[in-house]
């Protein structure tokens, strides 16, 4: 029998809850030869800013036990380039497009939002949480007031396109930031971004990353992510995209039970370019085996 996999985020229907995470899936093109992009619930593209950003000095990547650190510094060629070169390719597929926005100031965020005013995309995802950018970035996501402000500013210029706010885990109280975003008019939340971390090369006696510190992602952070999704889902009524270390279908189910409407997959794409599709197939099999007719039945079932 047919099982209902589709989920709804801010009035937009995703055919299933599997989404790719920003910065780990390029603009989709690179993965099109491994998987059928039409099968994904949504694709979140790499972070884009109004002007091109040059990024951090290398090394930018360090593997850690069950995780990895990155300090890419949101290198990107700017919104104009993205709209011209990458968006047309994505429009060929029957999936939703989430555009991840970054900025160093509120004006930056507004400018990049306006860059997309004529582009046919499905969601904005506001990256207020990237720990890599020294100027700004960090601060918006670490204070309730600034999270609310930047959300409100973007929302004002986003037109009909729903705005998802992506939260940083590098805070003392994630629920308070989530409430700030909600108060600012967010249509949904995505959590979590990377946890700030560091790795030292003891032989060279210096940090591995050129930027010294970077964002930790991968299975190592999953318990933190599940806990934060659980807490936020209990406290706000916005739909949540759960992210952080999801690599298997079991992980995806865990996020959904914690309260996530969809699950986005980041680092797992590096370990296995087919991870998203294998997770989707696993979810379908799990629903068959447990006679779950609608994926939404199990969302947030943890008391």
């Amino acid at each position: 029998m047919s099982r209902k996999l589709s989920v709804n985020i801010a009035g937009v229907e995703l055919k299933n809850p599997i989404v790719t995470a920003s910065g780990t899936f390029g603009s989709g093109k690179e993965y099109a030869q491994f998987i059928d992009l039409n099968r994904l619930g949504a694709i979140t593209v790499k972070g884009v800013s109004h002007e091109p950003w040059q990024g951090n000095p290398p090394p930018r990547i360090a593997e850690t036990h069950g995780g990895m650190l990155n300090a890419v510094g949101l290198q990107n060629p700017g919104a104009k380039d993205f709209i011209e070169k990458d968006l047309p390719f994505l429009k060929n597929f029957d999936t939703k497009i989430i555009v991840n926005l970054c900025g160093r100031t509120i004006e930056d965020y507004i400018a990049v939002t306006q860059d997309f005013s004529n582009a046919a995309i499905d969601f904005f995802e506001l990256n207020i949480s990237c720990p890599n950018i020294k100027a700004g970035g960090m601060s918006f996501g670490t204070e309730r007031k600034s999270a609310e402000e930047v959300t409100r500013a973007v929302k004002k210029h986003a037109g009909k396109t729903p705005v998802i706010v992506k939260l940083s885990p590098n805070v003392t109280d994630i629920v308070s930031i989530a409430k700030g975003a909600e108060a600012g008019g967010a249509d949904g939340l995505c959590l979590i971004n990377t946890l700030l971390g560091m790795k030292i090369d003891i032989h060279k006696k210096k940090p591995i990353l050129g930027n010294k510190v970077g964002g930790l992602s991968g299975p190592a952070i999953k318990p933190v992510a599940v806990r934060m999704v659980y807490q936020v889902a209990k406290a706000v009524s916005l739909p949540i995209i759960g992210t952080g270390g999801a690599a298997t279908w079991e992980d995806a189910i865990e996020f959904i039970m914690a309260g996530a409407t969809a699950v986005s997959v980041g680092t797992a794409n590096f370990s296995n370019p087919r991870a998203t599709i294998e997770m989707l197939d696993g979810i379908i099999a799990y629903m068959e085996n447990n006679d779950i007719k609608n994926i939404n039945e199990i969302r947030g079932i943890i008391e």
Binding site: F25, G26, G55, R60, V72, T267, F270, P273
Partner: peptide, 9 residues
């Protein structure tokens, strides 16, 4: 990380 051009690492 990726080898495919997606992570810009």
């Amino acid at each position: 990380a990726c080898g495919l051009g997606t992570c810009v690492g």
